[in-house]
């Protein structure tokens, strides 16, 4: 099985306080930010690796995992990390962060998919910076492929994937024929979430995203990484979404200490008005 995994770098969610908005409020200051791969995209890569192996021998890939990102040269670091973790090759679509929206990304990915012809696109359900949650869905529409969003588990069958999605009040299970788009939620990296046809039903993964082997980190440079100009995939680079303003969340006020339960109840009633 050949899987395409789109990756996006985001401002390190653990250092969110470093995200600065200039006084004009018209953009997010990206200089000095610490970048990390979008966590949901890391989960997507983990799911793609699990779908192309038998669990026991993670170095042996049954199929191919291709990772792709949009951005300037330094976003290749995100791709190198994915190559070190197990992806086979990488593509960087050259552009800058501020000239993208979900629609353009989906159109460029659709053009790339025409060339690459993957069996599945596995991607994060959304990026934790913009939280737009659009690309997978637009992509499925453009390609006219079946899609399964918010996947919590994936089981490979011949020519199809059985995907369970956590929805309000329960779990919905669906079967999508390949080729298909799957967007993943955080539970996709639980020990028994993903099974390829080669993985024993009794096999359990460690919880979470795997650790790159240190020799693989050193060898990642030798794996193929190609650059494609955005213009070669999308002639029309007009954005449909324009960001008008950004605002930082209000600073949290310090809490207060109450003497006793009576005072707590009084304040909850009269000040917080939640009782």
């Amino acid at each position: 099985m050949k899987i395409l995994v789109p990756l996006k770098r985001v401002a390190d969610p653990d250092n969110a306080n470093k995200v600065k908005i200039p006084a004009a409020g018209d953009k997010i200051e990206t200089t000095g930010l610490e970048w990390k791969p979008n966590p949901f995209d890391e989960y997507a890569l983990e799911a793609a690796l699990r779908l192309t192996e038998n669990g026991q021998t993670p170095k042996v890939r049954a199929g191919e995992v291709v990772v792709v990102t949009f951005g300037p040269k330094e976003t290749e670091q995100t791709l190198r990390a994915a190559l070190a973790t197990g992806a086979d090759r990488a593509i960087r679509i050259d552009t800058t962060d501020d000239k993208l929206d979900g629609d353009l990304v989906a159109r460029a990915l659709a053009a790339l998919i025409e060339k690459e012809k993957p069996d599945v696109v596995v991607m994060g359900k959304q990026a934790v910076d913009g939280d737009s949650n659009q690309v997978g869905q637009i992509l499925a529409e453009l390609l006219d492929w079946p899609m399964a969003t918010f996947a919590a588990t994936i089981k490979e069958e011949a020519g199809a994937l059985v995907v369970s999605r956590e929805v309000d009040g329960g779990v919905a299970t669906m079967r999508v024929k390949l080729p298909a788009i799957v967007t993943v939620d955080l539970r996709i990296v639980a020990p028994t979430s993903v099974y390829s046809t080669k993985t024993a039903a009794t096999f359990k993964y460690n919880d979470g995203v795997r650790f790159a082997a240190l020799p693989a980190i050193m060898a990642a440079k030798k794996k193929l990484l190609v650059e494609i100009k955005l213009a070669d995939l999308a002639a029309d680079q007009a954005l449909k979404v324009e960001y008008k303003a950004f605002q930082a969340p209000p600073a949290r006020k310090a809490g207060i200490k109450v003497k006793d339960v009576t005072e707590l109840v009084t304040r909850l009633k009269n000040e917080a008005k939640v009782l």
Binding site: A81, A84, F211, A212, L214, I217, M218, A220, K221
Partner: peptide, 8 residues
């Protein structure tokens, strides 16, 4: 590579 090894 050194940074990635440390971070891993």
């Amino acid at each position: 590579e050194e940074r990635m090894i440390r971070d891993t």
